[in-house]
Amino acid sequence: MAIIELWHRLVGLFPFSWAHYGFMRNALLSTLLITPLFALLGTMVVSNRMVFFTDVLGHSALTGIAIGVLLGFHEPTLPMIGLAVILAVGITLLKNATKNSTDTVLGVFLAFVVALGIVILSRQGGFVRYTNYLIGDILSVSMQQIAWLFVIFIIVFVYWYFAGNALILTSINSSLAHSRKVKTLYIELSFSVLLALVVMVSIRLVGILIINSLLVLPAASSRNFAQNAYSYTVWAAVISIFSGIAGLIASYYWGTASGATIVLFAAGCYGISAIYGRCRRK
């Protein structure tokens, strides 16, 4: 708590109108926690071709909320996490069992979780209450959510420190990873569960519709600049944090939804990186 107080005082010193609002200072802090996380996870999502998978995870939040409503939960985060973790484990096991492309199966899952969620939530015209989840609302972030983000931030970085190499080897060739004593199934499962956790904890802030872009865009942009794993991570983090801060502040002045504005900045970075990538190859 003392850290958050210190943070508020520090940001309050900035000579900008937005820095005087407590909600903006909280939003900035949570942006600084979320964006490096998403950059880190995104590097592996893009390398592992899991973009569609994370899209399904994000959209499963609708059904998660619906289950929460049906079960009478006041706060649907737990059922959302529960469902996303079950989906993540299920899809990973399915992918390993078939070894075929899971594209079609993911498409079916996506349709199913979205439709089921909407059907349950729209009973008696009540869907309007949940539109906040679709576009996200980082400005209303609570102290409790910031604390959660902080805990997950630490978990992800510790996990990445110990499992990073294993994740890289597994993504390149699982038999090669196996020959280096990597438990490939555990690595894949733990990564997808972690993804589910991070996506669900931050979905209320970022929004179901755009959360996947925040995972994909920084890493995709970084690929056009980076030559190795270190620069891949650093570029992704820099682009993600920059887009986060710029998007949040721009959304304050423009009066727009913060999540979507952040994604627009990230998309702009991707555009620049793609042009740079093309020039470099020539």
């Binding site: 880190l40 990073g164 190499n165 690929r223 030559q227 190795n228």
Partner: peptide, 24 residues
């Protein structure tokens, strides 16, 4: 199984296989 554009150097590949030091 990697894309041509994967930002992973030969050093990254070797170090990630032979050591515990995280290459990222």
């Amino acid at each position: 199984q990697f894309d041509i554009g994967l930002p992973l150097s030969v050093a990254d590949l070797v170090v990630s296989a032979i050591s515990r030091h995280p290459v990222w």
